[in-house]
Design a protein around this nucleic acid. Sequence first.
DNA 1: ATAAGGCCCTGACCGC
DNA 2: TGCGGTCAGGGCCTTA
Length: 275
Amino acid sequence: MPELPEVETYVRELEPELRGRTITGAAVTWPRTIAAPHADAFPAMATGQCFARFHRRGKYMLLGMESGDTLIVHLRMTGKLQVKPGDAEADRHTHVRFGLDDGRQLHFHDTRKFGRIWLVADTQPVLAKLGPEPFADEFSVAELGKRLAGRRAAVKGLLLDQSIVAGVGNIYADEALFLAQIAPQRPGGDLNEAELRAVRDSVRQVLGRAIELRGSSLGDSALQNYLRPGGEQGGFQLEHNVFRRTGEPCPVCGTPIRRIVIAQRSTHYCPHCQK
DNA sequence: ATAAGGCCCTGACCGC
DNA sequence: TGCGGTCAGGGCCTTA
C-alpha cells in the first residue's frame, strides 16, 4: 500500500517524465475518483494545463501546474499513476486517462477504487488536517509528546492518524515501532520522553531507508498494491523486520513475530523485544 | 475531544 | 469445479 516512501518515489520519478508536458484531453470512467471539481467539469479544467514542479505532503502527490493549479493525487490502497504509450489500452481498472502533448498518456489505475484526484487552485482545504511532515523540524519530540498527551488509544493506531504525523501507514507504523522497541498496544499517552524520541527517530529512520529503496512492494499477485511509475518494484520489503512476517523469528531475538489487530488494522510485532 | 465502528471496493482465499 | 462467505485496508463519516 502506498505510504510516504512510495508517494515520494512517485513524485521523484514522475516529475522528469511529465514536467513541461501539456494535457491534451482527459476522460473519466469512474466519476467517484474525482473529488474536485465535479467529475463532469474535470476534463475541461485539466485540458490545456502544463505540468510544472511536483511535491508531496503526507501521502498526497501534488502535481503543480504552470497555471498555479495543483493536481492532487491520493493512491490510497491500490492506485497507480503511470505514463503509457499513446496506443496503450485502458483496462477495466483504469478510471482516469489523460492525453499528453508528446503523444503518450497518463493513466490512473486503481483496482479498489479508493484513490482520489483533485484539481484545485488552493490545496489548503484538502491538506488542512495533516500533521507535521516526518522529516520537518516541526516533528519534534516535544511536539509528538504534545499530540500524544492524554491519549489512551494504542500508539500504533495513533501513528496511523494523519493529523498526528503525516505519511505513516500500516507497514511503516509496524516497522518503526519494532525499531523503537515499543509494543504497539501501549497507550500513546503513556510513552516517556525517551520512548517518544525512539518513536520519532525510528519513524524517520524507517521512512528514510524505504525512500532510498523506492518503497515496499508486497507480492500480492494481481493485487500487487505498489509498483513504481515505470512498473518496477520497490526494494524495502526485503528489509521488513515484522510486517507480514507472522510466525517467523524476530531478527533480533528469534521469538516468533505475533500478529494482532489494532484499530482494525493488522499489526505485527515482536512480543519479546517490544515493551 | 476522543474512540470505536461502518463504509467504500475488489480479488484472493477458504471451506464445503 | 463452483460457490458463497470473509478479509484487507486509508480516510472519512457517524455514533457514543
